[in-house]
Design a protein around this nucleic acid. Structure first.
Lengths: 266, 266
DNA sequence: CGAAGGGTATATGTCAGGCATTTGTCCGTC
DNA sequence: GACGGACAAATGCCTGACATATACCCTTCG
């Protein structure tokens, strides 16, 4: 007989989707709401249901799929958790197909990266490494593709009187600066890849008490990077960003372990 | 009076979460299942509910939150769609906290990137740019951190007799090669960032008919990259990867628009 | 003594039906 | 023409019940 395995154990090591026990290929029995969600999902991904389009109402879907309304609703919750549909009450309400926005995606990735920090799979060094890989080129690209509005917004993230700000406010400025650099690089895919990485690191730092000198130093860096971008000098912008990140590293080292110990959300 | 706005219009441009209509800060009314999902989610993210831990059964949750079982279930579907819990039937069943795996995350990101290609926000150039940014350093790192097993698996992805393979099989080899390079770089965060980008591009190509000469060329590149990694020469590995990607670019150009026209899943 | 087999408790999965609430629309009134 | 109320169309949520899968225990038989 097959070795006994309780549900709890199976959940710890779930069976792979495509690896059958033996040669024959079989699929796990899918619950009704999974099948419905899957079908609707494919209709959306395949373009059969265009963004903005309205799905049939729940009662109709229930009839079409031959299930109860409760089951349909559970499927719809799955889809809406993935930002594929939105649902509204009332007349003219119903479920509408939506494309996930960059920000949805960014938020989702970030919260998952957050969880990765808790696992042993990914280390602080990994985060810093990827951040360096993405933000240095982003600064370079920003210098090449800069426009007036980006430059203005960048300048606005560097406070004139840093000493008058609380640490929390400092971090708001800080976060804005890096976000705007990523926006200014003109590549939304790069933005959405780098933003969550930065964001996780940032939040780790934001829970520590940092000296005024530290914040002054950061603002200095930011000013230099901004200047290089404004000058349209990609090499200098990249170098400045690299230096900036390298000098931050020791601070992250100090804070990281404490973050893990205190728990993820604190 | 405020301008009229129907549900459908509101869905096209949903109100920002944090931007209040006027000075006072108010929150949108949350549906019951949203509140419950949010609470449970925070318990998980905050570590109050550890991975592997079992949630109370649905009836108990319903009592605790003061709602019906159906409402609790809709919340649980949301969480399980985000891979935060898994649910099993039967005695010893219930909902167990799980951390999303790297592969879950990768898959999810990929399917969202897929949708991005359909929007006008992200272009082919953006994809190629990010891919270059990530895979070139990945090849460099792989050369530095390589180990025996990775080298073996890399070699196995380069067929000796490419002409005997179907196009589809070629792509399986192809995909394996790049995936293994990303794994061999030793940074799981880099892996999970780069894999979806690569994957989207790859699938676009895989629907076109490519010449045998093309496949031979790719295998050649792969061989050179593998050799550089095996030799532990990061500079050469990076250069070879860059060349490889640059030479692929024209092919993507040819295929991309057709992919968009035929629809995403076609 | 050990293995096989059945019973049972415990959960989730699904259904049916109904009432509450929200919201767009239509229509009548002033 | 503006205002206001009735109405229709959806989702939101509830109650109660039955179906089904599964772990665990207990009995029985080789």
């Amino acid at each position: 007989m097959l070795p006994k395995q309780t549900v709890a154990e199976e959940i710890a090591a779930p069976p792979s989707d495509k690896a059958p026990a033996r040669g024959v290929s079989v699929r796990r029995v899918l619950k009704a709401y999974e099948q419905i969600a899957e079908q609707l999902r494919e209709l959306i991904m395949g373009g059969a249901l265009a963004p903005g389009e309205r799905l049939p109402n729940e009662a109709t879907l229930a009839r079409q799929f031959g299930v109860s309304r409760a089951t349909v609703r559970e499927s719809l919750r799955v889809l809406s958790a993935q930002n594929l549909i939105r649902t509204a009450k009332g007349s003219g309400g119903g479920s509408y197909v939506t494309l996930p926005t960059i920000d949805h995606l960014s938020k989702f990735i970030r919260s998952n990266f957050d969880l990765l920090t808790a696992s042993k799979d990914v280390s602080l060094e990994d985060f810093l490494e990827v951040r360096m890989l993405l933000e240095v080129p982003a600064a370079r690209l920003a210098a090449i593709r800069r426009d007036e509005s980006a430059l203005e917004r960048l300048a606005a993230t560097i406070p004139d009187e840093p000493l008058k700000l609380t640490t929390q406010d400092q971090f708001v400025f800080n976060e804005s600066f890096h976000t705007i650099v990523l926006e200014a690089c003109g590549n939304k895919l790069l933005y959405v890849s780098a933003q969550p990485v930065f964001s996780v690191l940032q939040r780790a730092l934001s829970r520590s008490n940092l000296s005024n000198a530290f914040h002054r130093g950061i603002n200095d860096h930011h000013r230099k990077i901004t200047a290089a971008i404004a000058a349209g000098d990609p090499d200098r912008a990249g170098d400045q960003m690299r230096t900036h990140l390298e000098e931050l590293q020791p601070e992250y080292d100090k804070v990281w372990k404490r973050t893990l110990r205190t728990g993820r959300l604190g």
